[in-house]
Nucleic acid binder design. Sequence first.
DNA 1: TTCCGTCGTCTTGCATGCAAGTTGGATGCA
DNA 2: TGCATCCAACTTGCATGCAAGACGACGGAA
Lengths: 218, 218
Amino acid sequence: MTEPSASSAPPLSAAERAYQHTKAKILSGEVPGGRLLSEGDVAAELGISRTPVHEAFLRLDAERLLAVAPRRGAAVLPMAPDEARDVLEMREAIELSTARRALAHGAPATAVLGPLHANVEAQRAAAAAGDVDAFVRADGEFHALLVAAARNQTAVQLYDLLRDKQHRLRAQLLHVGAEQVASSLADHEAMLAAVEDGDADALCDLVHEHVRRHRGIL
Amino acid sequence: MTEPSASSAPPLSAAERAYQHTKAKILSGEVPGGRLLSEGDVAAELGISRTPVHEAFLRLDAERLLAVAPRRGAAVLPMAPDEARDVLEMREAIELSTARRALAHGAPATAVLGPLHANVEAQRAAAAAGDVDAFVRADGEFHALLVAAARNQTAVQLYDLLRDKQHRLRAQLLHVGAEQVASSLADHEAMLAAVEDGDADALCDLVHEHVRRHRGIL
DNA sequence: TTCCGTCGTCTTGCATGCAAGTTGGATGCA
DNA sequence: TGCATCCAACTTGCATGCAAGACGACGGAA
């Protein structure tokens, strides 16, 4: 769920609520792959009409999360068996490319470093508290911040799609344990150090290694 | 009785027509960035109601081609000044990654090589006939075939988004000339040879060089 | 002149209703 | 029993209509 931005609540539109509601159900694995979803059911759940739900379904279809068959229904697209590998490959491709770009002119500005530092601090706190969920959230945010550091809007857009897919993978076939938290945190700290040094080669090696470790888990 | 005819035209839904119609207008540059689009206008043009047009606009918004402002209207998202560079960077990232994967086990099967050969033949024909449009179309298809050879559905999905963006870039700020056609064709022939040899390193070098050349043009 | 309130018109957001396509099961027949 | 047929209950696709928000024009007051 990458889009819902701000903290303040501008009264969410019905279509947006339907979208986030359904997407959350799919990503969390609450609705398994292959299951049929009915617009009418979702509309009733949310107390809205079918129209905004229909719109939400079309968006989810475009994201390849749902497969709507004309006049038959919408099925949650099952995860392909190789999807974990596919997503990790694309993660690595994008993270390596953006890492080089972000450090092309040496260490980035403090506007970039500040949030990274704050994020790693949040990771440390979550790890210390044993809050795996919070750590996973900060983890995802960390990598997204790194990608954003390249100031490549297209990369951010593509990476957002990957984050959703990874969310779903994690929910369905991965459970993060304490040792993964520790090792990921160590990786992230090393990556941040490489960013501060403006050392693109070191950062790329770390990203490669970091993704490789995930590959072993998934 | 019910034979699966792949070639016959399935009656396109109104929503799909609205989507393709509007997207084509944006990608071709017929509607400039910043211009406001009205659902009612598009609906009238196509002789359908506003509902399917509304759905199409939401999809285009999700693709970052349109920015719909609640109750105000939908504006064609202007291209960011660095979008050309951004898109090329992502193209290179994905093409390099998929190239390595496609050749990880040596030269691919003939099911992959066949369409590539046919495509290059089409490129030669278009180049010989001086049909730039046909060449550009085959060009895009060639790279998409290479990406698809990696059998990574996620890569294909991301690459499709890039193709749309590139289509728009080409329409707006690039005109392809005869010497670009010749040099691209030569690149593609060399790339196909590398694929046949199963030589991933050579293919990656060629991809890098190919994209670099485009960077000079854009 | 400049500022501010009001109103008309434009836009979209969504509920509702109807038509059309699909499916699964009941029914009749061999 | 096995099979073709039909029907009833679903599903979605889309047109229509209404309401609400946004913007600009107009006019009056300071």
